[in-house]
């Protein structure tokens, strides 16, 4: 399955590369688009950090926190999963200034996308923690561990391995949703593409190159998460055999 997927990725990348290389004068677009890609990558990375933090806090709060916090976590998850990412982005961008909170567009982008993906991630965290066998909890009680100790040393390390594949999907979702930030004036890859399109009208070349760049970043995420998964699974197996 994994091999098949890698073959597919290789085929796609190769043919996409051929298509791009066949464009006459495609070089002139590359520097500007790569600058845009850098912004896209920055937002993806920062958004991923926000998302992981929000997801862990909200996911654990939904399971273990006292009721006011639990309700807060549920409200956050439902609110951000129930509305569009674009609406959230616009809300933070246009409405927050009316409350006297003016944020940089970049901050808005990272916060909105991070919170959005974090809400989906919270369910991933909850699912992974819930999937740790009950016996593990019972064993921590038998060993007289506190709940925090049990979570930190026994439960979360096992849940972590199960979380990696769904997080990989979410990071790709995050990468794809960064294209939205072009609509709040951030000059990311999508924004650059539109700008160049309006000045040069070389639509086919520009948008194809942009799609290929997104694909390349997504492939890096896929490969990276796969490597992380193998490493984490290996580490867990070693820990168990001791």
């Amino acid at each position: 399955m994994v091999m098949r997927k890698l073959v597919v990725v290789a085929v796609v990348s190769f043919s996409a590369g051929l298509v791009v290389a066949s464009f006459a004068g495609f070089r002139e677009f590359i520097p500007g688009l790569l600058e845009g890609a850098l912004v896209t990558i920055q937002i993806t990375l920062a958004g991923a950090v926000v998302a992981v933090v929000c997801a862990t806090v909200a996911g654990l709060a939904k399971m273990y926190a006292p009721w006011p916090l639990r309700w807060l976590a549920i409200a956050y998850i439902e609110l951000f999963r129930g509305t569009s990412a674009l609406v959230q982005l616009f809300w933070l961008f246009f409405v927050l200034p009316l409350f006297g909170i003016t944020l940089q567009p970049m901050t808005v982008a990272i916060a909105a996308l991070g919170l959005n993906i974090g809400a989906y991630g919270a369910e991933v965290v909850r699912g992974a923690v819930a999937a740790v066998p009950r016996g593990q909890w019972e064993a921590t009680v038998a060993l007289n561990m506190s709940r925090t100790q049990a979570l930190r040393r026994i439960i979360l390390p096992q849940a972590f391995v199960a979380m990696i594949p769904p997080w990989g999907n979410l990071f790709i979702e995050l990468l794809k949703s960064t294209a939205l930030v072009s609509l709040i004036t951030i000059s990311d890859l999508a924004f650059r593409a539109q700008q160049m399109n309006q000045t040069t009208f070389r639509t086919l070349e520009i948008f194809t190159i942009v799609l290929v760049i997104y694909l390349a970043i997504a492939s890096i995420i896929t490969v990276g998460m796969k490597a992380l998964e193998q490493k984490a699974a290996g580490a867990l197996a070693r820990g168990r055999s001791h």
């Binding site: 794809k176 294209a179 999508a190 948008f207 694909l215």
Partner: peptide, 29 residues
């Protein structure tokens, strides 16, 4: 099977916004 798989993977890993632009701006060409 292989080209279809490749196409599906391609669509899945690129942003919808760009695909919308692509259809709207490129197809007229």
């Amino acid at each position: 099977a292989l080209p279809v798989s490749a196409f599906v993977e391609f669509i899945r890993s690129t942003p919808l916004l760009i695909q919308i632009f692509f259809l709207y701006f490129v197809f007229p060409e």
